[in-house]
Every structure is written in structure tokens, then in C-alpha cells.
Design a protein around this nucleic acid. Structure first.
Lengths: 199, 199
DNA sequence: CTTCTGTGAGAACACCCATTCTCACCGGAG
DNA sequence: CTCCGGTGAGAATGGGTGTTCTCACAGAAG
């Protein structure tokens, strides 16, 4: 039971999950075969099935893994911007835009998976709900109006996947600014928020 | 070539399309087999394939049909509310809420289809884009900020499909009101020009 | 009546895929 | 050295699916 043993046991696991993540995200769950995952990962079918007893288990592992990595990456980007002096809305939408302009961007893995309706097990639906719930909570910790902001962001993600351009995210940012500005107005006039170019 | 002949030629076509529409929307495209469409419609496989040479053609016909029927239904609901004196935002979100609370609601057929990525032909992607484009144009004819509103609405649809409750649509309406309120502020009071539907 | 066209019912075909199995092989244990 | 558990490569299995084909039949035309 040395540390090396643990590494040994996990051998190929990370390669398999990485390949699965790449393929599932790019092509959708149903369109990817176990053989393709073997080809891309170099992990044999036999080992694949000892690591994940069925494709369902692999999908499940992918969704959990995706939740972790995506959340980490997004929060990291947001926090970087916050430390650069960005206000919350700018940090959030800057991070989103950065993600959406990646060449591999194909929308939200969880929304996409949810659309493959009948093939999903209840287990998967639960992970999807939890991811969206977690994301909304995070936005809520950054701004008031977090739930409404989450709706806007999901709309932007979906439209960015359908139309390839940058318009959806700009419209979303515009809506988000109106949303938070309205609250700011209510919250006392305070200083005169000179509307920066909302572009 | 009497009118009866035309009817004869179309015999079963409507039944086939109705069944396909129901099944595709409920279960997703890939999950529905031609045999299931035959069983539910009563149209034999042979006739099915003379009407639609391949499943791809049937999917294509469904998307076009869905665009028509959904758009008609939505506009009808909106116009009813407008005539009842609702302001544009209330008419739009009232119509949406009515749709989303139907028991068969499973999100937007176009967003869902788009998520089944690799199985879609370019033809289908184009229909999906056109539908969203058309919808945004319609919102734009009803309110200023139509594009941003379209983003919010898509977010609400997606979240309503994931979470079953009414919260997403309420958050969306809240955001939409903030959006138009902000513009109204800028535009001074002014009167509301009632745009007739275009197209 | 016969002939021809088009149909329904369903078998047949030609794939594809998740999952399992075979078998030769390799490294460690005794 | 032999023995053995676990492995990779890939074939086999069992089931499913889009599409086509067979065949018997119904009805219009001659």
C-alpha cells in the first residue's frame, strides 16, 4: 500500500477520463463509443471496464470531473479579474467571454447533456442540477441578483453555442448591467454611477 | 390531379409528422426509432420512407414544422395578452409561463436538438439558427432590447427544463423588467409605439 | 376475368455498439 | 526455473437500428 501502489492503481484512469471528457464534450455522450475512447486514450477496453464498469459510470465520472475543473477554472478567472480591480459584473462576464472564445467551446456540457434526455439516468440529472445550483450560488456570493444573473448567463452560453459570434455575451452583459444598476438605483443613489460605455 | 388527389398524396403525412414531433420532442432525436414512429402513427415503414426518404429528412421536416407551430402558438398567446391590455413584457412572459407549465414541456426543441451535436446535419443547424433569429426579431418588434431579451428568455427556457419549478421564469421576468426599465428611464417617458408583428 | 400499380406487414440486410471473452504474454513469487 | 494473476489486443456476443426487400393483396383499368 505504498503511494506508488495508489498511482499504479490509478494508471490510465486519468488518461481515460481526459479522453472521455474531450470526446463527450465535443460530440455529445451518445455519439461517442467506448472504442473511440480507447483509441484516443490508449487505455484498453478491458482496463476501461475495470476502471468504469459501464459507460454510464464513465459518464457519471466525467460530469463530476467536469463540474470540478470547469468551476475551478471559472472561479480562478473571476478572481484574477477581481484582483485586477474589476467590478463583479465585469469579472464575471470577462471570464465568460474568455471561456466562450476558446476554439473548443461548444456550450455548457451540463446543458448539452441534459438535452440528451432519455439516455440520461436520474443520477446524471441530479449532477446537472447540482452544477447549476452551485453556479448560481457562486454568482449570488458575488452580486446581489445572483439567480437572475444565472438565467442570463445560461442564455448567453446557449446562444453563443448556436450563433458563433460575440453578440450574445454582449447582450447578456448589457442585461446584467441593467439588472444590477436597477438595484443600485434602489439602494440609494449613492455616488453618480456614470454609465461607462456598456457596449 | 384533383384536390382529392392532393389529399390522397398527403395521406398519412400529417399522422407521421405528428407522431414524429411528439416523440422527437419528448425523447430527443437519436433516441427515437423509425419503428416507434410507425407504431405511434400507424403509418407503415414503407410509406414512411416514401414520404421521407430518410430519418434526416423527417427530422428536417419536423424542425420546420415545429418552427411554424411553436411560433404561431407563441405569437397568438402574446397577442391575446396585448389585446387584454398587457404591456409587452407581461405579454411575453405570460405567454412563456403558459408554455412552460404545460405538462409536456421539455425545453426548447431547437436548443435540445442543437445539443445532440454530431448527429446534426448542417441543414439542421441552419434551421435552428433561423428559428432563434426569427424569435429575436419578433421580440425586437415588441420591445426595444429585443436581442438582450432573447438571451434572457433562452436562459429561462433552459433552466425551466433543468429545474422543474417556476423560479427561472420569475428571475427572467425580473431581469427583463430591469432591462426595459433602464431603457425607459433613458428614453424619458415617451409613449409606447405598438409595433405590429413583422414577417 | 386479367393485369398492373401501389400498399401494409413484417422479414431481411448491413451495419453499429456496449459489453464480454479468448489467448498469448509479462512480471513477480516461490 | 515454474506458476500465476493481471494485462493488452482484438475477436465474439447479443442486441439494436436505419433502410430495403418480399410477398400477398386490394382496387382501378382494360
Amino acid at each position: 500500500m505504498s503511494p506508488a501502489a495508489i498511482v499504479d492503481h490509478a494508471e490510465g484512469e486519468s488518461a481515460a477520463l481526459t479522453a472521455a471528457a474531450d470526446l463527450f464534450y465535443k460530440h455529445g455522450i451518445a455519439a461517442v463509443t467506448m472504442s473511440e475512447i480507447r483509441d484516443q486514450s490508449g487505455v484498453s477496453l478491458r482496463r476501461l471496464y475495470t476502471l468504469y464498469p459501464s459507460k454510464v459510470d464513465l459518464v457519471s465520472a466525467w460530469l463530476r470531473h467536469r463540474h470540478q475543473t470547469w468551476t475551478d477554472s471559472f472561479r480562478h478567472r473571476v478572481e484574477q479579474r477581481l484582483q485586477s480591480g474589476d467590478v463583479a459584473i465585469d469579472a464575471i462576464f470577462g471570464a465568460l467571454e474568455e471561456w466562450m472564445t476558446e476554439t473548443e467551446f461548444r456550450g455548457c456540457a451540463f446543458i448539452n447533456s441534459h438535452a440528451e434526455a432519455s439516455k440520461l439516468i436520474d443520477d446524471h440529472r441530479e449532477i446537472i442540477r447540482l452544477h447549476k445550483e452551485s453556479f448560481a450560488n457562486y454568482l449570488e456570493s458575488l452580486t446581489s441578483q445572483g439567480r437572475a444573473l444565472a438565467v442570463i448567463v445560461d442564455g448567453a452560453i446557449v446562444q453563443a453555442a448556436i450563433f458563433a459570434g460575440p453578440d450574445p455575451i454582449h447582450h447578456a452583459r448589457h442585461a446584467a448591467e441593467a439588472l444590477t444598476a436597477a438595484v443600485t438605483d434602489l439602494q440609494e443613489s449613492a455616488d453618480s454611477g456614470s454609465d461607462r460605455g456598456l457596449e
